[in-house]
Design a protein around this nucleic acid. Sequence first.
DNA 1: GCCAACGTTGGC
DNA 2: GCCAACGTTGGC
Length: 154
Amino acid sequence: MACWLMKSEPGECSIDDLAAAPARTVPWVGVRNYQARNFMRDAMHVGDDVLFYHSSCPEPGVVGLAKVASKAYADATQFDPASHYFDPKSSPDAPRWVHVDVKLVRKTRLLSLADMRAATALASMAVLQRGNRLSITPVTDDEWSAVVHLLGAA
DNA sequence: GCCAACGTTGGC
DNA sequence: GCCAACGTTGGC
């Protein structure tokens, strides 16, 4: 079972939005980066563990644990001209963008980006590497355990 | 296939 | 708002 870190801007979908969603599940719409899409399409499986991360906000960091709740399927927003995520080059016959559903397991305390950078056990995390901008990154089992340990040690 | 220009991300 | 880093686009 693989683990992932998924970034969300709290202004778009916060951990509280996820907690309030029906079945505490949201479709992870809006990914418009091929590498992140490929992770969802090719490498994610139902039941994979997810670190839910707030980005582009005053306190970036991990704020919850979640799971992958569906296989990848077409992102409806790419076909909607009114959507911010509309992609005129995509067609329903050959959808360019797909996504999975993500289901909340539990909210956690904030494990801030600063906390993460300070933790030696997390030094190799993809999300912490210089220049990283990917909204979805793989997390190793060891990194997952270290994050959960840090969250528990609050 | 190269590469310059441009757009986006995201922390600060 | 700044800026570094990186991805995408499109002319050639």
